[in-house]
Design a binder for these strands. Structure first.
Lengths: 192, 192
DNA sequence: GTCTATAGGACGATAGAC
DNA sequence: GTCTATCGTCCTATAGAC
């Protein structure tokens, strides 16, 4: 079930996290996945095909661990759940770092590769909507528009903080503290 | 005074905005600047040298137009000045788009090129401090720490929104509206 | 589906003249 | 400081066998 193609995608996420989209060499990807370069072109057509499908793979995987996270026994308040979900992306675990790095890279690449934009927009939308739902559970009386805006801001801020963290200018602790305060500011604004 | 080297840096900013850091070819840069590739290596040593100095150039230039902006006759309230300064980076003019694109690219590149990090950190610090000053003029009673945090959040959010705008997923109007609301939320928080 | 082998081009960098 | 010319490498992509 986790076929060759899937294991190539897993390898692609690792390589992108290690070298960036800019540093992704098909040959290195092949070595990482333990296959030949020809097989990669067979499955993905060209370099852009690799990037597109890797982006989809990464966003699916992120959605999955974001969802599963709550399956732990504990009962969390809506606000705790909101905070936990956002902070999940600012953690120094291999998996999160890999996902964040690859995600940042793919978004940055989309500025110059229009082929990536459609998938990027879809993944972003799903992520924003999930966040708007969580916010709505904390502030049930807020309007859908206000919730959507807050969700867009928090996710965009998270991406900005994540990038600073990954590029070495912002310690993780500090990034997390900043994000928590932003959640507080947004909730205050919604509760007016 | 605007010597060859400067005009190469201007050309580099244009090429990076057009093709990205990964898409920057020394040959294309040479053509854009109207010089030979050899001259570029003479002035910048290697590709990384080009990137480093271009980053410095861009951050200086951004600082300059950020400062000059207030020299227009009108007297603005501190809050108007704050809003104007931040919104300045979300405009569809050639110069701003070029600066934002190149800035985003260089930050993303720094994740994988440690040589860029020092310059990046310095430029970010200057930008954050300027923003903290502006916030301090709006809310004089706020603590320095609170101002610094708000400034870090607003600039990180701006980078996140900017990236979404440039990667095609967020219309400029919407990005501007989101940023204005974030300023509002941060000021509310500071004024408590 | 998967491999080996390689074509073919692009690109960074330098040598050497002026 | 600036150019012309070029070397050598790296990298995407495909041809063709199994």
């Amino acid at each position: 079930m986790a076929g060759r193609k899937t294991s190539i995608l897993e390898a692609a996420a690792r390589v992108i996290a290690r070298r960036g989209v800019r540093g992704l060499r098909v040959e290195e990807l092949a070595a990482e996945a333990g296959v030949s370069t020809a097989l990669i072109y067979y499955h993905f057509k060209d370099r852009t095909g690799i990037l597109r499908q890797t982006m989809e793979f990464i966003s699916d995987r992120a959605e999955r661990y974001t969802t599963e996270r709550t399956d732990g026994a504990e009962q969390l308040s809506p606000r705790e759940e909101l905070e936990r979900t956002l902070l999940l992306e600012l953690q120094d675990s291999a998996e999160v770092r890999e996902n964040s790095t690859a995600w940042g890279e793919l978004r940055a690449s989309a500025v110059f590769e229009p082929e990536l934009r459609e998938d990027l927009a879809r993944a972003t939308l799903i992520w924003v909507q999930e966040m708007a739902d969580l916010l709505g559970r904390v502030v049930p009386l807020a309007s859908a528009t206000a919730l959507a805006s807050a969700a867009e801001r928090l996710t965009a801020l998270l991406e900005g903080l994540s990038m600073r963290w990954l590029s070495g200018g912002l310690p993780l602790d500090h990034a997390r503290a900043l994000l928590l305060e932003a959640i507080d500011a947004e909730l205050r604004r919604l509760q007016r």
